[in-house]
């Protein structure tokens, strides 16, 4: 009985310690690029949020769709109104984990793979993404590049503009993490 108490007491200490390890970023940079015969379309957001737990290797991203800025505002309007329907589906979200056995507490630059579910336009699809994690002084930074097939997320491109919008869009992500402040 005494041992149980000791274990529980230990765990009581261990849980907050694990939670403290969580690192977060509130200014994830996301860029997407669509290259079609008639037009290249590019948009940027710096308002994504992300968190990573080096102990459990869990990783999380969320970005407001309306935060993507286009050069042409009319395009931005169409992106929100007609394609991503941001009133109905205001966020894109990724929940996953970093694969492999790389120690995410040790300083260095590590090529990594992450696997998880990405929800865009209300449709969830599982993705496997490769990227890089750099750790300096215990703080993480992550970079990744991956491709999203718009049809996978039930985003319909009318045949009228098929030459303007690519069917596969390239997404580039970078995030600088800091120890998470408890909410």
């Amino acid at each position: 009985m005494k041992r149980i108490f000791i274990i529980i007491a230990f765990l009581g200490l261990a849980i907050p310690a694990a939670a403290q390890n969580v690192q977060s970023c509130r200014s994830v940079r996301l860029r997407f690029f669509s290259s079609a015969p008639l037009e290249d379309i590019e948009a940027m957001s710096t308002q994504g949020v992300s968190a990573i737990n080096p102990a459990t290797r869990a990783i999380y991203f969320k970005v407001p769709i309306t935060s993507f800025q286009f050069k042409k505002k009319l395009m931005q309007e169409h992106f929100n109104e007609n394609y991503l329907e941001s009133d109905k589906f205001p966020y894109a979200e990724f929940k996953g984990r970093v694969l492999g056995t790389t120690d995410l507490t040790k300083d260095g630059t590590w090529p990594v793979e992450a696997e998880g579910d990405l929800q865009i336009h209300g449709v969830t699809k599982s993705y496997r993404v490769s990227g890089t994690i750099t750790i300096a002084g215990g703080n993480l930074a992550a970079e990744a590049k991956f491709k999203v097939r718009v049809a996978d997320h039930n985003i319909k491109i009318p045949s009228l503009v098929i030459k303007n919008i690519a069917e596969v869009v390239e997404v580039t992500m970078s995030a600088q993490y800091q120890p998470a402040v408890k909410p």
């Binding site: 969580v22 737990n53 102990a55 459990t56 869990a58 309306t66 935060s67 309007e77 984990r97």
Partner: peptide, 25 residues
């Protein structure tokens, strides 16, 4: 706790889910 921590990652940002941006279109 490991399982909990994984699910909780999104909750860190739970508060700023309120959209303050202007209504468009």
């Amino acid at each position: 706790p490991a399982a909990m921590a994984q699910d909780d990652l999104g909750a860190i940002f739970g508060k700023d889910s309120v959209r303050r941006d202007p209504v468009t279109s």
